[in-house]
Amino acid sequence: MTNQAGGGRPPPPPPSQSYAGLLSELMTNTLDADYEVVASRRSAATGASPQGESGGDPRSGWSNRAGIVAAVTAFGVLVGVSAVKTAQDQPQATAERAQLIEQIEAGQARLDDLHGDLSALQADIGRRQQEQAGEASAASRRTDDLQHLAMSAGTAAVTGPGMVLNLDNARHAVPGAGGLILDSDVQALVNGLWVAGAEAIAIDGHRLTALTSIRFAGQAITVDYRSLTPPYVVEAIGNPDTLPSRLLETQGGQLWLGLRANYGITFETQTESTITLAGDAYNNLLWARPVGSR
């Protein structure tokens, strides 16, 4: 680079032969020279340049600006259209996706409902099963109670060891002569059997219950309103080892020993290892009810 000395002169034109020079000229002077040329040309053409260097041709400024605006606007429109397009396209692309998600959410809600139903059902069944287990054990207790009560009341068939008594009027007995078996005789005998520890008694197959009456009608004993014909068979379940001897110690037993000895009435006893007595078929009670049941 040369530096020529000279006063008042504008900077000499830069050397144009070197790349470094060109680059620095571009950096430093850029368009200045061109603008000067254009400006001088313009002032020459109009004769005046009121707008000075910064003015320039309005038309050429407008077209420049219009280009920029157009480009920027086009860019903006592109971005906008793309955004709108995306916004429009995306629902289409995700319409299915949104629908899927909706279905999934509905499916999960339904599954939750079903699980709720299921656990409610399981709880309900568990409760009922527990209830029924309680009922079943109550029912089995009730069955035991019923069985004991029915055996005791004489309504259930029972079997066990005991004794059998054969009773008959005296031969050629006539009323009033003492050879006939009276209801009070049978009552006394049965009472004696209960005293001696009998657990169940039947006369001629009729099981005795709390309702059974032993009466005398005409010439015969009636048990439970049914007239029996002698000989009478009395069966009693109890300890076969003690029942006969204890019976004879009772007033009823003593009575019958006297009847046999004094009037020729038949009074035979024997023990049995197995006696089976049917239960008395009973109807519901007509008058009596448990206290507080009504």
Binding site: E135, A139, L146, S152, A153, A210, N284, R289, P290, V291
Partner: peptide
């Protein structure tokens, strides 16, 4: 089954009442 059981229980309870009165394990009135 619980309906059937209830009917059976009712019948059993009636029977218990009758047997309880016959056997003397229940107080009775009438």
């Amino acid at each position: 089954s619980s309906e059937r059981r209830e009917a059976a229980v009712e019948a059993a309870n009636e029977q218990l009442a009758v047997l309880g009165i016959l056997a003397g394990t229940l107080p009775a009135e009438g």
